[in-house]
Nucleic acid binder design. Structure first.
Lengths: 202, 202
DNA sequence: CACACAATAGTACGAACGTTCGTTAACTGC
DNA sequence: GCAGTTAACGAACGTTCGTACTATTGTGTG
């Protein structure tokens, strides 16, 4: 029972890395088994079907994202510091290259499954909603703390922040433009400045 | 010589539609032939290889984009009007559903090929560079016309505009959120306002 | 140490993949 | 209206896909 779980997570981590390059749909059991130097059938036995493998791979990526982006941001002070930490962690996640050689798996899956109904898409949408909710909540807190104007629309700001991250991913991954990271930082600061509360600041 | 060209473009248009749903990599000759009610071999004869089909499909989509987004925007007055037209055409392109049921093929391909070297990626990157250049040029003109501040960085603004479109595509396609379109409009106006030149306006 | 069972390997399957071939049907230019 | 060209077809290639079985190895426990 122990060995099984162990190799299963080993498989899933490799699956996340491979899927980040070829997509969740392009992920094949054969090639995954080859990369892990194990038999196709042996690997397949861990998952009842390919869709199961895809779901668990996506969930693994989501967990990883939560642990590396959202969770550590919560350790920062409420308001703008936390929002900035979240954004900066997110950019670091986008540019990491060690175990996500093909960029963010979730962002890739978003485009892959935007009109491919099924369990994978449902899980993906749920994750995106959660992330957007967390972002909006961080913004709302920043408003309550008096860092941002009360008239700031959290969802509008969330939308625009998300756009900056998407553009960064695009420029960094496809065009190989490292300046995208500073552009993202500039865009964030300009956005914050536009919504910053008048009297006290942070 | 005439009939051939005719069915070839017929094939390519259908290929653009299909690839917008399943991606350029997921595009298979068999399923494409089935949708066109013709034989796999008959279809294949029009293209020497699958990569050729992918390249021509992408090029077809790029041409379509140019004709529907970039080209009509040039008919508007230089400066902000043209920039606004470009943006609005672009949003219309993103939300169109008749012959691009799966969203923008180029945006999907950007994620699919961001680390998959080859001719397809090269063509894609070239197209993206051209688009970004056109956007930056429109912004520069708006600066020269006195609509935007002289200190505005065209490339930074291009980056942020692109991010808004990406976020719109994401929210509209994956989350099915129609409000994304107004959010995009609001974001654009706020962005313009932040960079608008002081004295004369448009 | 041995037994029980979990974990992996092996083999085989039907289907779909991209591609090649030879042949037939349809068009085009004189 | 015939000759020559081009477009489309059906069949088959070898490979890979996901999945189903059976057999063998390995591990943990009494």
């Amino acid at each position: 029972m122990r060995k099984g779980e162990q190799t299963r997570t080993l498989i899933l981590n490799e699956a996340v890395a491979l899927a980040s390059q070829v997509g969740l749909e392009g992920l094949s059991i054969g090639s995954l088994a080859e990369r892990l130097a194990m038999s196709k059938s042996g690997l397949f036995a861990h998952f009842g079907s390919k869709e199961d493998l895809q779901l668990l791979t996506l969930k693994q990526a989501q967990t990883l994202f939560f642990e590396e982006v959202l969770s550590p941001a919560l350790k920062h002070a409420r308001g703008l510091p936390r929002l900035r930490a979240l954004f900066s962690n997110w950019l670091a996640w986008v540019k990491r290259n060690d175990d996500l050689p093909g960029g963010c798996l979730m962002l890739a899956a978003c485009v892959e499954y935007d009109d491919r109904p099924g369990a994978v898409r449902d899980l993906l949408v749920a994750g995106q909603r959660e992330l957007r909710g967390a972002l909006a909540k961080a913004i709302r807190i920043a408003i309550d703390e008096g860092h941002l104007k009360p008239r700031t629309d959290p969802w509008q700001l969330t939308f625009e922040l998300f756009g900056i991250v998407l553009a960064t991913h695009h420029d960094f991954r496809l065009l190989g433009d490292a300046r995208a990271l500073e552009r993202a930082g500039d865009a964030l600061e300009r956005l914050i400045e536009a919504h910053r509360a008048a009297a006290p600041s942070a």
